[in-house]
C-alpha cells in the first residue's frame, strides 16, 4: 500500500488559517489501512484543528467526510454537491487525492494534510517499512524476494557495499542492510552462484526517470 505520515499540525494550520469554513476529506484506501487518513483520523484532525484555532481565537467551521477512494473519479464525484460550501478543503489521502480533487473541482482549493512517503507494509503495530520503489521493472525474483532498488540505500544490484556491518546499513544502525539479508538467504539455500554474475546497469526508463508514467490497459480503455 501507499504509506503516509500526517503533516505537523502547525503546517496544516498555516494552510487554512484564512478559511472560515473547511471540509476535511479522508480516504478509505491505503491511508485508512496505515492509520493516517481514514474517517477516524479525519475526526482527530478536525478536533485538533478546532482546539488549535480556538487557542488563537480564530473561529472556523469544520466538516468531515470520507470517500471510498480519492484516486477514482467515480468517488471524487460524490463531493460535487458540497464542494462549493467551503473556503478550502483538506485532503487526508496520499498525494494522489488532492490532485484528483483539484482536477475535478478547479474552482476550489485543496490542501494536503499528509506527506506521502513510500510503498510498503506494516512490519509491526504502528510500524511501516518501504518495500517497493515503483521502478516499473520488477527484479525481486533475482534476489530471493527482496528488492535492492527500494531497500538498499544505494540501490546496488551487485552485492553489499563496503559499509555493510553486522547486518546494518552504513547510513543507520536502525536500518537493515538488505544485501546482507539477500546474501545470507542465498547462502542458506545454496544459491550463492546467483550472485556471482554481474547484473547489468538498470534501464531506468520504466521508472520515474523516464518521465511521468501512464498505464493504459487497452481492453478496458476501449470499453
Amino acid at each position: 500500500m501507499i504509506v503516509a505520515d500526517r503533516k505537523p499540525i502547525q503546517e496544516i494550520l498555516e494552510m487554512v488559517k484564512d478559511c472560515k469554513k473547511v471540509l476535511i476529506v479522508g480516504c478509505k484506501g491505503c491511508v485508512t489501512v496505515c492509520n493516517v487518513g481514514g474517517s477516524k483520523e479525519v475526526g482527530v484532525l478536525a478536533a485538533t484543528l478546532k482546539i488549535a484555532f480556538k487557542k488563537e481565537e480564530i473561529s472556523i467551521e469544520m466538516d468531515e467526510k470520507t470517500l471510498e477512494r480519492q484516486c477514482d473519479p467515480e468517488y471524487v464525484d460524490q463531493l460535487k454537491d458540497m464542494v462549493d460550501d467551503y473556503d478550502g478543503i483538506i485532503s487526508m489521502a496520499c498525494g494522489v487525492g488532492p490532485q484528483f480533487l483539484s482536477a475535478a473541482y478547479p474552482e476550489q482549493r485543496f490542501f494536503p494534510a499528509v506527506n506521502t512517503t513510500f510503498f510498503g507494509g506494516a512490519v509491526g503495530h504502528g510500524i511501516w517499512e518501504e518495500r517497493c520503489a515503483g521502478c516499473g521493472t520488477c527484479v525481486i525474483h533475482y534476489f530471493d524476494g527482496m528488492c535492492p532498488i527500494a531497500r538498499c540505500s544505494k540501490s546496488l544490484l551487485n552485492g553489499p557495499c563496503g559499509g555493510s556491518a553486522d547486518g546494518k546499513c552504513e547510513i543507520s544502525k536502525d536500518l537493515e542492510c538488505i544485501w546482507d539479508m539477500i546474501v545470507r538467504k542465498k547462502m542458506e539455500h545454496g544459491r550463492i552462484d546467483d550472485l556471482l554474475e554481474m547484473k547489468p546497469a538498470k534501464d531506468w526508463q520504466t521508472a520515474r526517470d523516464g518521465g511521468p508514467r501512464k498505464s493504459v490497459r487497452e481492453e478496458l480503455a476501449n470499453e
Binding site: 544505494k154 540501490s155 546496488l156 544490484l157 552504513e170 547484473k199 538498470k202
Partner: peptide
Amino acid sequence: SGDHQRFGNHPQAKNVYDIDSIQLIA
C-alpha cells in the same frame, strides 16, 4: 560506490546511483 550522502555536508542532496561500482568498472 561512494559513501552515502547522509554522512556528508549536504545530506539534502539527491542520491544518484544510476549504476553501481561493478557496472562502472564494466
